[in-house]
Amino acid sequence: MRPFTFTQAQDVDTAVQEVSLEGAKFVAGGTNLLDLMKIDVMSPSHLVDITQIALETIEETEAGGIRLGALAKNADTAYHELVETRYPLLSHAILAGATAQLRNMATDGGNLLQRTRCYYFYDTQTPCNKREPGSGCSAIQGYNRDLAILGTSEHCIATHPSDMCVALAALEATVHVTGKNGERAIPFADFHRLPGDTPHLDSNLQPDEIITSIELPAKGFAKHYTYLKLRDRASYAFALVSVAAALELEGDTIKEARIVLGGVAHKPWRVPEAEALLQGQKATRDNFRKVAEAYLQGAQGFGHNDFKIELAKRAIVRALEQATNR
């Protein structure tokens, strides 16, 4: 860990001012940032502690949805009555990630900003375009079991590691941010980026911006949902493939379907055109498989992760079955 200066911001405006200094970063839960600072993958020269800012409230919005304060803890969010009853998909997704200890520390805003767990990103003695642009991607020709099969580029095949974000994408959340130029709202689908030729950028959040809240619309799919996470051990592991599935059913006919994949791309992976295939269709295995095929169109494996293509298809079918039968 390299030396850094440290300040605590009491309000959003100060935080935005402070983070505008070159080399500055916010710290809140710290669960990923300190992890990375210790191995020199991230090395801010100035840390702005934002935990004193009053941004931890979870409340209903006028639009009938809810607003998650950016500093609400993952655990408090997952166990919040409003979330458990109206957005159980989100609750389940959060609880599928990390551990009780980490969820007690990690914040909702920070969860969005998690970095990839790619083996090479985590080892400064190996080339990695995300960590050191232009140094090359070790994973494409190397070990890539955990890595992406969709939306990859020749520069990077990292995945976004969050479970929570997969559910937020399915629920069409909006991310509210404040920067030097004021406030703006970013639809969840536009929050994270694909690697393209700028793999060092994970999201479209600007360096001077702070996430203030995450807003969920009224529709919570509390009746037919599932978060299915497949991993290499039963708990405390990142997803090989995960699926957030939410259905609105009328009898056995699907009115609306939401399907988002985790563990397969640089962002939660949603294909609205493929989702639309289910609209007005019966909730059958055959129809689910059709959607699954459509979702994985264009998927490309890199050797060790080839299996994810078939696994993701089967996971989609299983998740939709579970959501239907719940």
């Binding site: 390299r2 030396p3 850094f4 200066t5 200094l21 070159e22 080399g23 500055a24 020199d40 991230m42 090395s43 020269s45 100035h46 400064t124 003695q125 960590r131 050191e132 642009p133």
Partner: peptide, 13 residues
């Protein structure tokens, strides 16, 4: 072992 890109950013104490 020194990460040159990051070492040059900003004013570090």
């Amino acid at each position: 072992t020194e990460n040159s890109l990051q070492a040059t950013t900003a004013v570090r104490p």
